[in-house]
Design a protein around this nucleic acid. Structure first.
Lengths: 234, 234
DNA sequence: CCAAAAGTGTTATCGCTACACCCATGA
DNA sequence: TCATGGGTGTAGCGATAACACTTTTGG
């Protein structure tokens, strides 16, 4: 094939605007929350929106997503996963844009509150979201569905908790994700039987007089067990 | 915001070539196979490749994927799912292209053999693939991983079998997907206990003198049971 | 009648569920 | 001392895994 034909092949195709959008999950006491932003540009300026950005010519899709997350939360080592593309021709009245949605799990206590204010952002309980622009509502629903499926078989819940957490906290998190109550004894038995938590000597007394022991997720031990065929399931 | 600013916002961003690629799975007797194509254009003309295409300005991503599948197999009602984006800056030496990979499950007996020949395509056993161009090797690995995870909890295996199939066939399929032997009695017990298969009066005698009863997947019954909270697991 | 694949039941074990009481502590 | 949340054990049940023999029939 001549280089003229090659040129024609690639140049004959049409370039398209590509964006990424981020569904940012946080967990607060007993509630799953989303970080939403007041959109600054038309159309729909002033309305609530996921945070997003166009993919620049010098960056890959994951790089764009990480950039956006860092700009909006100040965090750069967060759990971030691609969720799927949204490409309806009419999805954005401003222009034809293909968006690749991502969801992120962040620790509410670690993100920079100041950046949230700078961006006119707000944390909303998942069950009480405002109307969102474009197809962002659909994206959030798909994100929660994906989070639910994934959390059952992979230890990603810990990404939403502080580094040190109590078992009651962990249980509340899973109850929020699954939207159902779990039995305390059975929950403890199961999670502890996996031997992927390190029990610390400290107690957290913010929620009770007795205090609850703090634990830490042991990533190394988990990966070791996973290699040996153990599989996480909650 | 003025419309001049709006214009700048959308026009300030850079458009990018967007493609889709398809990992096409088939199942033949006891082997999982992939449909691969001899690439017709430079760079890498003549080498083996997944089938793909640029996303046109008048179509969405799923539409592009369906178009490509129909062009290459003649089938238009196949199981097709998006798998993720591939966007490394250097992934395609011909140009900067973001590709959104999809995997498809098709019935080997239904696709148009003639189209396969037209496209200089060939079915390869998954365990014996030729070298593939670009990042297509990585895509196929990710596709199999995804198929494995998904097949365990959703009845998608049937998409790879003829409409009527025998239990030994179904078992061979799952053995090929999981790459491990399953116990015949336990396998039957489990799949039959779900009550999502309709037993027919016909037998398939191609593999034995005695013949094996044919079954059909009952989509309606499955959806009904799923609504009631039953969950498929194999 | 025999080779080759299809079909069938039982038992032991494991994991899950359901469930109620004691413990530690600060106010 | 008491109210509050944290922590623990067990028994019954259902699901899974392991395992071997009989049936059918074309050649």
């Amino acid at each position: 094939m001549s280089s003229a034909t090659l040129k024609k092949y690639y140049e004959g195709a049409e370039k398209i605007l590509v964006a990424i959008d981020c569904i940012i999950f946080g967990f607060d006491k007993e509630t799953l929350k989303l970080l939403l932003f007041k959109r600054k540009i038309a159309p729909f300026a002033g309305e609530w929106s996921l945070i997003g950005s166009f993919v620049q010519s010098g960056e890959s899709v994951p790089e764009a997503a990480q950039r956006v997350l860092e700009e909006s939360t100040g965090l750069n080592n967060v759990y971030l996963e691609e969720m799927g593309s949204y490409s309806d021709l009419q999805r954005d009245p401003g222009s034809r844009v293909i968006s690749i949605a991502h969801y992120a799990l962040i620790r509410l206590d670690e993100h920079k509150q100041q950046l949230v204010e700078t961006h006119q952002a707000r944390w909303f309980p998942y069950d009480d979201l405002p109307d969102l622009i474009l197809d962002h509502q659909e994206m959030t629903q798909n994100a929660l569905a994906k989070l639910r499926r994934k959390a059952r078989y992979q230890p990603i819940g810990f990404e939403l908790l502080p580094e040190k957490f109590t078992l009651p906290q962990l249980q509340l998190l899973y109850q929020a994700i699954y939207q159902k109550k779990l039995d305390r004894r059975n929950f403890r038995k199961k999670i502890l039987s996996m031997k992927i938590l390190e029990k610390l000597d400290e107690k957290d007394k913010t929620n009770s007089r007795k205090g609850a022991f703090l634990y830490r997720f042991d990533e190394k031990k988990y990966q070791e067990l996973e290699r040996k065929g153990m599989n996480f399931e909650l």
